[in-house]
């Protein structure tokens, strides 16, 4: 699947303006660019777990979606779209529908890694022909920046606040893409906003047009929760990739493929420093926390290289 940037940008917009996400939100950047993976003329039904994206893009009576859209609840985006896809199959079988539809559902990391995990796992295991897209901003942003299992270690969140006895979140983040890959689904990929969105676009198109279940994990920075300078989102994403904090990879039919290897892996400080949620790591005496963070990034990167070398 080739990528012609200008032609891709020339496609009709499938997420209308007038939604109420914060200025500079990474979530809708992810959505717009995923939807550009749809071929013109193909219809889609979009699912959505409860979260910022849902309350902001379908605030009655204003829908920002140019396709059919269903929000059900927080923890069941996978199951809800399973039912929609089941309806599509049944209506096709009965000769009541001629058109081609694709099924894409969006959830934040809270609705995907945590409360919606069972529903997601079920939808993946049953191999429905749908794409689950997690826009991962590493916390429950809609309810006010509480930690999730996607929150990186040491992040200062409202439920893992930094204090005299606390360095932020004590645990590492869950590796959800690997967990979904272990479901043996046809396609899993991790991406973010880099390389003029080529990586994200190609993976979206593959995910949408690969028959069966597909999962995309997209790092989508949140200026409120991460506390960086809002216009710098693209730089934050680039640093996430160049430090190997957020590697770009895909798993196609069980085969792990590394999509990008930095020529010179940058130190993790470069990714953490611009973000207010990690400010405490740069206090004198906390160097050991940075070392521990770096060690964790290195361990995961080596693990990924090993998986991709097989």
């Amino acid at each position: 699947m080739s990528y012609n940037f200008k032609e891709t940008m020339n496609k009709p917009e499938r997420l209308a303006p007038g939604h109420r996400m914060c200025a500079g939100c990474g979530g809708t950047i992810a959505v717009r660019n995923v939807l550009r993976g749809l071929h013109e003329g193909d219809r889609a039904v979009i699912g959505n777990a409860t979260g910022c994206l849902e309350v902001s893009t379908f605030t009655y009576p204003y829908t920002a979606w140019e396709d059919s859209y269903i929000h059900n609840a927080f923890e069941n985006a996978g199951a809800t779209l399973s039912g929609v896809e089941g309806a599509y199959k049944a209506l096709k079988r009965k000769g009541k529908l001629d058109e081609t539809y694709k099924f894409i559902t969006f959830g934040g990391d809270g609705g995907t890694y945590d409360i919606g995990f069972q529903s997601l796992s079920g939808a993946m295991e049953r191999n429905h022909d749908l794409v689950y897209v997690c826009y991962d901003n590493g916390a429950y942003m809609n309810t006010g920046i509480q930690r999730s299992s996607a929150t990186p270690m040491y992040a200062d969140t409202t439920t893992t606040p930094v204090g005299s006895q606390s360095n932020g979140k004590p645990q590492n983040r869950k590796d959800l893409a690997a967990i979904i890959a272990a479901h043996d689904v046809p396609y899993v990929a991790q991406t973010t906003f880099v390389q003029n969105f080529k990586d994200l676009h190609v993976k979206s198109e593959k995910a949408i047009y690969t028959p069966g279940a597909a999962f995309l994990n997209i790092m989508a920075p949140c200026p409120r929760g991460w506390r960086y300078n809002t216009p710098d989102i693209m730089e934050i994403c680039r640093l996430g990739v160049e430090t190997c904090y957020w590697p770009l990879f895909e798993v196609e039919e069980g085969k792990w493929i590394l999509n990008y290897e930095p020529k010179k892996k940058l130190p993790i400080e470069d990714f953490l420093r611009p973000q207010g949620r990690f400010k405490h790591l740069f206090k004198k005496g906390n160097e050991y926390l940075l070392e521990a963070f770096q060690k964790e990034v290195d361990r995961r990167w080596d693990e990924l290289l090993f998986r991709c070398s097989r």
């Binding site: 269903i70 059900n72 399973s82 089941g86 049944a90 009965k94 079920g122």
Partner: peptide, 28 residues
Amino acid sequence: VDTEFIPVESEHSSMSAAIGASAAGARS
């Protein structure tokens, strides 16, 4: 029957999927 039978992983999901199917235009 012509029905799409979906053996889901929980009752929460069975009702969620039935809702999705019904909204999609199916009798569920």
